[in-house]
Design a protein around this nucleic acid. Sequence first.
RNA 1: UAGGGCGUAGCCAAGCGGUAAGGCAACGGCCUUUGGAGCCGUGAUCGAAGGUUCGAGUCCUUCCGCCCUAACCA
Length: 589
Amino acid sequence: MAKDKLHQNNIVNNNKEPVDFVRRIIAADLAAGKNNGRVHTRWPPEPNGYIHIGHAKTVLLNYWIAKEFGGRFNLRFDDTNPEKESVEYIESIIEDLCWLGVDWEDRLYYASDYFEQLYEWAEKLIQAGKAYICDLSSEEISQYRGKAIQSGDKIITPPGKDSPYRNRSAEENLDLFRRMRAGEFPDGSKTLRAKIDMAHSNLNMRDPIMYRILRTTHHRTGDRWCIYPTYDWTHGQSDSIEGITHSICTLEFENHRPLYDWFLQQLAVFHPQQIEVTRMNLSYTVLSKRKLLQLVEQGCVDGWDDPRMPTLSALRRRGYTPAAIHDFVRRIGVTKSESIVDVALLEHCLRQDLNKHSPRVMGVLAPLKVIITNYPDDRVEYLTAINNPEDVTAGTRNVPFSKVLYIEQEDFMEDPPKKFYRLAPGREVRLRYAYLITCTDVAKDEQGNIKEIYCTYDPATRGGNTPDGRRVKGTLHWVSAPHAIDGEVRLYEHLFKKENPLLVDKGEGWLENLNPNSRIILTDCKLEPSLAEAKPGDRFQFERKGYFCVDIDSERAKPVFNRTVTLRDSWAKLIRREQGKKSDFSRSS
RNA sequence: UAGGGCGUAGCCAAGCGGUAAGGCAACGGCCUUUGGAGCCGUGAUCGAAGGUUCGAGUCCUUCCGCCCUAACCA
């Protein structure tokens, strides 16, 4: 027994990475000779919105499993509700999946491809007395099903009762069904229902709806149909047609599995196995197409690809890499327990990848002018900077240095606190790859705001080295003023203030948890001249500030950068902690 | 309420009767021409209570909590 288990593990995985329950099931099926050793998965998105990071988890799970077991993977659009679906969404989903690196080869399918087959099967069920046409209204059906009733503080679940149309003859049902298809009846006036069991403890088995009348133009089948199959009637059969062996879906479909199985049994066709896994939740955001749509429609964000959104197109625009998402999905695992994954893990995976691959540049986000008083007026030096200390093959570049520079406003303090080891009057710091400078003077305007500062440089420290071995605590990034290019930088924070935005106090809505600082636009940034060449999608690390990606709004004269993610910042953390302490103190006193 | 599912550290998650992996976060420290990166170190008796067993996170019973469904959406 123990040996068997070990053997199963070996099939899927010869390193020590734990194997999840889904892969375990598949390995066991394979070992038992099920499906002739075939593994075939699929991912069935409904094209009714853009896909998000949560979807990335389930597609990758399906795609990877197929690859690992030497099987196949299909992409199938579950397009049975034309009212909500569109080609825009189909196109975006395909684009996002390609970017993610998911490959369905030539197996791109649509549930709507199977409408005719589904219709024939429906007739077959009718003829077998397993389905009937029902004239009950939507509200009546719900009533007959045994809709839960609130009685006092208790909820009562009445048993279902048969529809008065339940015992129509097969002939009558067939006739009515054909006339439904022919368009003889108004929308919503009739449905085709499976004849199962109105007393079943699982509500899904109480004569579920298979077809509804709906005169809506379908994005693929046009006006060919005025009746559309429901999800339950479509899904399992589509899986069966495609020869899917393992149909992986999310937990909320667990209740539907008996129905999934029932239809396939009645039709006596190939029977895939449905396996449910938990859906991903991420902290500080929402992952529900309905809610994301709401954010878009209400203008809370600029669109589906607004870099604050958790959609794949937004993450791509913001600068996320497919590799980071792969790593993240791999790390969170596959289980059935409901969870909210900490977005910090995603950001960790991102930094990990970006650190290895992003060229480093210098950019000053909030500039403060520095004048090197002992530096010759017209002199310009080109100093050598390392492009990526994590990657020697990335080489070096030359950065211009001159008498007037910009440094970050926050890197200078007139009256610095204890652990601040950047620039202050009388203090010496290093300008990265350049010189050590000492602040000698501060110029202010009438309001007392610091206008510019004056420093001297030590010519012996070219490149940032100290021949005498003296040490400086701080190293600052900088940009030569006459050489700098202007740029716009968009800083992003979490879209929501709360870890779980859906947790709201009574009388409040989740939209009130939106973070008002989720986007801050800086328009007066000074960037090193090499950035003039940057193209949309290019990624960089701005030294000491974070990872940035050129936005599609960029223009040659004025590049726009999205902050993908900050660097880990122990100084910022220290400050936050201090402030936290202070505010705690003031609150309690 | 009925049916289905879940409950291992702040967050994920291994564990499959033999005495609690790993990652993220957090907190210390080392190192550092990014307060970056890297390196080292620090934490749980497993929802609760009973029971079976030489031995239980793992088996049984009861209880508690949370989630899903109750759509002619998927």
